[in-house]
């Protein structure tokens, strides 16, 4: 029988620490497959975030750097400018990119750095215990918004991709999701396109936002969490190519 699907070599053969049904595992696999398909494993450097994916360097078999919270775009800037032939990507969650690291990502895009950013948006601070994130949708119950997020006290969800799409330095911005196999295929295409742009030497930042489930802190089963992305989260964060 022909093998249709198996683990890609760049994804290390070890179990992950993620909760059952977490979207990080899918995103890791898509990045690993992209790296293998493009044949850039030997010259790729990844940057792991602070957050649930802090141990991403244990799972991706490429050179990885762990940096301070929210600072991957700043470190990636230095790495890309000193090693222009290397492929630099950062993997960041919404706590890392949309909260503490907002200044870094906006200015990296504003300067038009030639890096690829994979932004995992799960609308909650997963690692620290499910507190409200800037991307938490209105009415969503979290540890710090037990009555649901209210505009009067907590403001509105932050749509980072729309912000970045306005900047001329960002050449490619797309929002995808992983709620079903068809969307996962689209996400794979988007991630691959973002890497291809960098490989081809395109002048600017490429970012792929991935709407990802956090079943534990959304207080749902993994299947319900996927449905919640499809039915609720995509209303606030519409899928599609925003730029490029």
């Amino acid at each position: 029988m022909k093998t249709v699907f198996t683990r890609t070599p760049t994804l290390k053969d070890c179990p992950t620490h993620y909760c059952p049904g977490c979207g990080h595992g899918i995103a890791h696999r898509l990045i690993a497959e992209t790296i293998d398909e493009l044949g850039i494993r030997g010259r790729t450097i990844g940057i792991a975030p602070v957050g649930c994916a802090v141990l991403a360097y244990n799972y991706l078999d490429v050179d990885m750097v762990e940096v301070a919270h929210g600072r991957p775009p700043a470190v990636a800037t230095g790495m890309k400018r000193t090693n222009p032939d290397k492929i630099i990507f950062s993997y960041q969650g919404d706590g890392d990119l949309a909260a503490i690291g907002t200044a870094e990502i906006i200015h990296a895009a504003h300067r038009g750095e030639q890096i690829t950013v994979i932004f995992i948006n799960n609308a909650v601070f997963g690692m620290t215990g499910g507190q409200m994130a800037p991307t938490t949708v209105l009415g969503q119950v979290t540890a710090t918004t037990p009555q649901g997020r209210q505009t009067t006290s907590e403001g509105y969800p932050l749509q980072v991709s729309e912000l970045l799409a306005l900047l001329p330095g960002a050449i490619y911005v797309e929002r995808c999701s992983v709620y079903n196999p068809a969307q996962i295929r689209k996400t794979k295409k988007a991630i691959k396109h973002a890497f291809e742009l960098q490989v081809s030497g395109a002048q600017g930042l490429s970012l792929v936002e991935v709407l990802s489930p956090c079943p534990v802190y959304w207080r749902m089963t993994p299947v319900k969490a996927m449905e919640w992305i499809e039915n609720e989260m995509t209303k606030v964060f519409p899928l599609g190519r925003l730029k490029g």
Binding site: I26, N180, P181
Partner: peptide
């Protein structure tokens, strides 16, 4: 049928798929 839907969505990449052509 070896469609690989399960393997595509599996967050832990524990599924291998084979298909008889």
């Amino acid at each position: 049928t070896g469609c690989a839907m399960c393997a595509i969505i599996c967050p832990d990449v524990v599924i291998e798929v084979y298909r008889d052509e």
